[in-house]
Design a protein around this nucleic acid. Structure first.
Length: 429
RNA sequence: GGAGAGGUGGCUGAGUGGUCGAAAGCACCUUCCUGCUAAGAAGACGUACGGGGUUAACCUGUACCGAGGGUUCGAAUCCCUCCCUCUCCGCCA
């Protein structure tokens, strides 16, 4: 949710954001409705005042009781009409407000979709091996790490089952990533994965994201596509003490959580794409970084860079080549202000592919969920929220298997993961 | 899933149709008193939005007693629906 005052004062900036983010919203209509809403609000307020005064006279001026009641009834009748008008206007107002996007930060590239994303830099060397490389499907099957056939019988398209070293490798990489961010002061969280509509709306996945969420039979709960939803919504209507330090440089503090969850995505709209292997699946595991910080663009910018750095360190420790891209306006979510993706090299795809996504929301989510803190000046303010993938598996297994494969189909284990695999240096055969 | 109880201000907790934005206590804040170890006295003390004001103090209006709807001239108080909490039973990893 965006501060209406900000919208009133900068309509052109929001029109620009609506255009570049490809949102279907008539901002002028919103401004008109906002004006109507305020005028009607005043009228209703005035009528209520009259009615309250008249009602008081019923008891304080007993002799004229009957006439006061009659008068109060008249006002009440007028009030009913105005209130219903106001209600209709407010309904439209909230509907329109729910579609107002966050303003992209300065420097965010413009573009219609992910083809407009801009590479910022790349690290790690793409190795050209002197033998015929296998793709992750072949490698995983060869090493009996995965069972696609059985899983698809059990669960349908895009299903997979990790077995043996596949299962252990996934747990190892998740635990490694978790430990990495825990060492940075993050607090581990296993949040609810079945959440209500308020949580989905509050985090900005609704409206517009309904197609990608699994709705449960009870009609009131949804499976989350990331632990961010549960973690952020868990803080709803809370006011933090001691998040002080907006603009205070190094002196600021933040709340940092590491969410661990299975993630569920319908992948609607991706029908027929990436149907083979472990790239695009309905269910996967993720360690997610979530941060709540002071309401200060500089502070959240610093947090954004820290989140990005944490994840880069993880990819580096896994000895995988990657690049960082600035995500363009058309590929950003409604509430997002800035987004960087880490794309990891996947030999079989011959491309750097998204494995991490780092987002800054400013107070978009905090406003929807009422998450605040008391600033150094004693005032209540909405926090800024951010999140970034620490690791998502099995997608990262594609990169691990393919980039670390040997001619005989075995897989070299990066040093960082060896402690999590009983000291093994090689998997397979 | 069944039965019952309940959701009031930072906390505890009164309040069953008007004098209630809400008693009392605790906590917090200010001042006074006193030198002392959960001392005493006085006062201030909810949130959101709007109006006035030397835009600060302050004055004032509306709404808010889990959420939404209804009854009524008037609702924390009565009715309905939903959400949540607690207790007991059942079931279950």
């Amino acid at each position: 949710m965006i501060d209406i005052e900000l919208i009133r004062n900068n309509p052109d900036a929001f029109k620009q954001a609506i255009a570049t983010k490809r949102i279907n919203l008539d901002l002028d209509r919103l401004l008109i409705v906002d004006e109507e809403r305020r005028l009607l609000g005043k009228e209703v307020n005035l009528l209520r005042e009259q009615r309250n005064r008249t009602s008081d006279l019923v008891t304080s001026d007993g002799p004229n009781r009957a006439s006061h009641i009659a008068h109060s009834k008249e006002i009440g009748a007028a009030l009913v009409i105005k209130e219903s008008e106001l209600k209709a206007v407010e309904l439209e107002y909230h509907k329109l407000m729910a579609h107002v996007p966050g303003l992209p930060a300065e420097g965010v590239p413009e573009g219609a979709d992910d083809s407009g994303n801009v590479e910022i830099y790349r690290l790690g060397e793409v190795v050209k091996r002197p033998f015929k490389e296998r793709d992750h499907i072949e490698l995983a099957l060869l090493n009996r790490m995965v069972d696609f056939e059985g899983a698809r019988f059990a669960a349908g398209s895009r299903a997979y089952g990790l077995i043996g070293d596949g299962a252990l490798l996934e747990l190892a990489v998740l635990r490694f990533a978790l430990d990495h961010v825990l060492a940075k002061g993050f607090t581990a969280v296993l949040p609810p994965l079945m959440v209500n509509e308020a949580a989905m709306f509050g985090t900005g996945y609704f409206p517009l994201g309904e197609d990608n969420a699994y709705e449960l039979e009870d009609g009131k709960r949804y499976l989350t596509g990331t632990s961010e939803v549960g973690i952020v919504a868990m803080q709803a209507n809370r006011t933090f003490d001691g998040l002080a330090g907006a603009g205070a440089g190094e002196g600021y503090s933040a709340l940092r959580f590491a969410g661990i969850s299975t993630c569920f995505r319908r992948e609607a709209g991706a029908a027929g794409r990436d149907t083979k292997g472990l790239y695009r699946v309905h269910q996967f595991q993720k360690v997610e970084q979530v941060v709540f910080c002071a309401n200060d663009a500089e502070v959240s910018e610093q947090e954004h860079l820290r989140l990005l750095k944490n994840s880069e360190e993880i990819v580096q420790a896994l000895e995988l080549p990657y690049r960082v891209v600035a995500v363009c306006t058309g590929d950003m979510g409604l509430g997002q202000v800035r987004k960087h993706d880490i794309e990891t090299w996947m030999p079989s795809r011959g491309a750097y592919c998204e494995t991490h996504s780092c987002s800054t929301f400013h107070d978009f989510q905090a406003r929807r969920l009422g998450i605040r803190y008391i600033d150094g000046d004693g005032k209540k303010k909405y926090v800024h929220t951010l999140n970034n993938t620490a690791i998502a598996s099995p997608r990262i297994l594609i990169a691990l298997l393919e980039n670390h494969q040997n001619q005989d189909g075995t897989i070299n284990v990066p040093k960082a993961l060896q402690p999590y695999l009983g000291g093994r240096e090689v998997l397979g055969l």
